[in-house]
Design a protein around this nucleic acid. Sequence first.
DNA 1: TTTAAGCCCATTTTT
DNA 2: TGGGCTTAAA
Length: 832
Amino acid sequence: MSDFPDDMPFFDEPGAMPPRPASTPAPSGIAARAMAARQAPAAPDYLTGLNPEQRLAVETTEGPVLVLAGAGTGKTRVLTTRIAHILSQGRAYPSQILAVTFTNKAAREMKQRIGHLVGEAVEGMPWLGTFHSIGVKMLRRNAELAGLRSDFTILDTDDVIRLIKQLIQAEGLDDKRWPARQFAMMIDGWKNKGLGPAEIPEGDARAFANGKGRELYKAYQDRLQTLNACDFGDLLCHPIRIFRAYPDVLKEYHKRFKYILVDEYQDTNTAQYMWLRLLAQETGAPGQKNVCCVGDDDQSIYGWRGAEVDNILRFDKDFPGAVVIRLERNYRSTAHILGAASHLIAHNEGRFGKTLFTDRNDPEDGKVNVHAAWDSEEEARAVGETIEQLQRQKHNLNDMAILVRASFQMREFEDRFVTLGVNYRVVGGPRFYERQEIRDAMAYFRVVAQGADDLAFERIVNIPKRGLGEAAIRQVHDTARALGVPMLEAARNLAESDELKPKPRAALREVAANFERWQKALDNTPHNELAETILEESGYTDMWKNDRSAEAPGRLENLKELIRSMEEYESLRSFLEHVALVMDADKNEDLDAVNIMTLHSAKGLEFETVFLPGWEEGLFPHQRALDEGGRSGLEEERRLAYVGLTRAKKNLHLWFVSNRRIHGLWQSTIPSRFLDELPEAHVEVADAGNSYGGYGGGRQNPYGASRFDSVGEKSFSNTYATPGWQRAQANRTEATDRNWGSRSGHSVERIGYGETDSGFGAGRGSVKGRTIDGELIAKSVASEPSRFSVGDRVFHQKFGNGNISAIDGNKLTIDFDKAGQKKVLDGFVNAV
DNA sequence: TTTAAGCCCATTTTT
DNA sequence: TGGGCTTAAA
């Protein structure tokens, strides 16, 4: 409630004036640029050190501006300096600037860096934050226009799923057949597009719950309203609806915001776009549109969660007369790394087209290294060796990162580092506020703060166990519905009646009495003390103290940490809001450790040395991205590769393996097409040593020969001078057809493609054809009976000779002479 | 209420 | 293959 702006004057009092180092009055528009151009003697120091493009992006304050900022070109610097510039020129008060980011981390960083430039004035920037945090702020001011009270609760995904499950059951639908999780995702998708129940496409509405999708969505929204709650999507959708229905509300914001800045514009979804467009119709004065969007279309990697690259691509159409500024001078990476990344990304269509360059020219800089390994174990071992080697040369582990496409790849590296005794940290992963004990504790607090929070109530009413079974909870639920009151109140009523058996009645009475007492204490007890009391008196801490499992002590520790962190907030409410919006917890930076994370979570980061393992078809690009996204899916994968490459400052190592175990089955893999899209001049194929990394042995790469087919084979040198290098794109399909055309001949070895029903992406039972560049290149033949029988002697590329001991469809269990019993797909073995 | 056995699933993730 | 989750049984 602390930052609830209603107690503040809408426009700022002069006391909030920013420092104004420039004593000259601020000229506007062209005049400003003209003055800058003639090198005004009093150029403030924050401008020094900017390159011309950056400076232009900072100083073009009036009118719409799109800054296309390539990786490592100083994007954040431009954004923060621009704000500092606006402030110190006296063009706006801090509270008249709307600055939006996607993540809390980005917002925090921005705030910090502006602080360095302008000092205290940052504190007066209440409208710097994530889309969602700003959305909440707006919604709280006008909650009643969305049918909510201003103290509404924000539900997390967990709550949402439980709520939807209840609704599905209430409709008399089978919650197995219609999973709540799936419907939650559908709702999320609709809200990403800004669609309410009435606006969703008929097809979507029919696709769920026997055609009841729309009704269910409606029921969900109604339920949220009675609960006085919002989901994440609503934090933007409600404001959009309010802006449209109440122009005077929007008008106020138009008057208020003189400058709008948006970070990572390529990641905006349709709802965010609509929200922004409404606000950006006017900034400060009639006809004025001071919107500055910063982004990089080449780093758009969140299409799968609703981001529309199109938003950035059509910026100049949305805002006619927009100035487009390209930042292409890279300050991060070596020329080789940039060359490799640029060449790769050039394979994408539908992009603005930027070419990163650098002045850096150090002959010491090595090329990008491509390595082959036999399997993922060897891959991890080799990466580990390189890391130890670097460590011996006094490199910090903190400066190294392993970026994987999918998190299952992490395990092998972790295992390896454990045996080597190398420190590592996994970035991302399950977060503090998502832990069970934290959520439970938060549920207690939520009920205390907002008695109508039924979802929170239901979560903890029987935790710790109080003998309140399903039946009793159902009764509370039904009573609450019947009386139209929150469950807490219904519980109180029931405890006084004799509708329940003595045991649950007593339990309910105690719970109700507890909450009543805590709620009373809320106003006159420091909230962190109260929180501790709640957890003690409810028996929640005891529950974990009595728990003998290995995690219990850690959970108690987390609860302590939770209480400790509450001190920083002035009220229970503001703490709850913080947790709802800021789900991240900080990692231990003190420890020197190798960073392991997914490519997605690496966006925005940089490391001296980067390892990119798993560059194989099916994994990267991921088969599922190709199947579901066609050509645009492939392009997004390529952008992901680009993001990966551009994280590296000096050293970059790419890896691919010939064999990988997927879902317990060994699959033979072929090098990623992205490897072939790297330019020869900047890449070095590292010696594979003893390992046989080639895609040889008579198999054929269905995408046509690749220059990586024979890495490690002695008949070829380790260079690019392999025959496959000149492979034309057209040959790819041709070669593929040839390959598949001959598949019925037993002499031709088959690779695992198409026939697998457990391979990448293919669904069980219903095997899809494989799609590359959006075209179907091969149909599955899963129905084909296995050409082997039990007892057959076969040869496997990885495991050698063995006898088949069992056959399950196309899955063979084979007793190998050397490797022991393994399960493999029949496509990977040959009759001997 | 707790434990064991079957069952389904298997990119990426922020708020 | 292996983890998370639901169901069935004690």
